[in-house]
Simulated assay, not measured.
Amino acid sequence: MAAETSFANASRRPRPLTLVAIVLLHLAAIYGLARAFAPDAVASVEDSVLSTITVTVETKQFEPPPPPEPEPEPDAGEQGNEGRKAVPREVVAPEPRIVVKPAPPAPKASSTGAADTSGARDQGTGTGAGGTGTGTGSGNGGSGQGGGVATKPEWIGGRINNARDYPIPPGGRQARVGTEVVVKVTVGTDGRASDCSVFRPSPDAEADAITCRLVVQRLRFRPATDAAGNPVAAPFYWRQRWF
């Protein structure tokens, strides 16, 4: 009988998991009451707790792959030789009575040459004539814009290193750790960025869009210059990495 009573008393004891669940329910009820009657105090405590969790954001200039080498332009054609001066032959062509097949005309005046006609020709037979060539030409000038970028844009100011600039993604901030995005902007002659686009996206499209906006708003650059030292607009690639 004593053994049965002891077993009954033991079965009525609460289990550890039950105790944990009861404690969590009490804590949730207390937190809900605090949020309802003292929201400012709860928000202050939450900010102090979140401020202890920091995320380091590293920024680094991204060098894009070099552009492909331009294809070599074809060599300019040379001017052709002038036509040779023809000398008529000694034979004079008689007037035929019946023409079956026209033969090359003989010169009207006889001489010691071998050509059918006399005089100098207007054009030669090469790629260019004595006057105006008909080949590929010598190519004195092009029709492009010319010039080019002598120096690239250089980042000189502004940073994107505050974790509060980016919302917490699903799964927490740790879900973004170790990822990066590369955006492309156009740096104008005033050193400001514009026309931002995502060149190499990260897994978080919302963070990529925020990075584009912050690059245009915060970063400042030294503009690119041409061969004469004048500032010109040029592309710039920015890499944003999260740690």
Rank of each mutant, 00 (worst) to 15 (best):
E4D: 14
T5E: 13
T5F: 09
S6R: 15
F7Q: 14
A10E: 10
P16W: 04
L19V: 14
L27P: 00
Y31M: 14
A34V: 09
A38F: 15
D40G: 12
D40N: 12
D40R: 10
V45R: 11
D47F: 09
D47P: 06
V49Q: 13
T56M: 09
V57P: 01
E63N: 10
P64C: 01
E78P: 00
Q79T: 07
K85Q: 06
K85V: 07
V91R: 02
A93D: 09
P94Q: 02
K101F: 04
P102D: 09
P102F: 00
P104E: 06
P105K: 04
A109P: 01
A109E: 13
G113T: 02
R121M: 13
Q123V: 14
Q123K: 13
G130S: 14
T136G: 12
G139I: 13
Q145G: 08
G146P: 03
G146S: 09
V149G: 00
V149P: 07
E154M: 09
G158S: 04
N161D: 15
D165Q: 10
D165V: 04
P167L: 02
I168R: 04
P169C: 07
V182D: 03
K184I: 05
V185K: 06
V187K: 03
V187R: 04
D195S: 15
D195N: 15
C196V: 11
F199Y: 15
R200C: 00
D204P: 05
I210Y: 02
L214E: 02
V216S: 03
L219Y: 05
R220Y: 05
F221M: 02
R239T: 09
F243P: 09
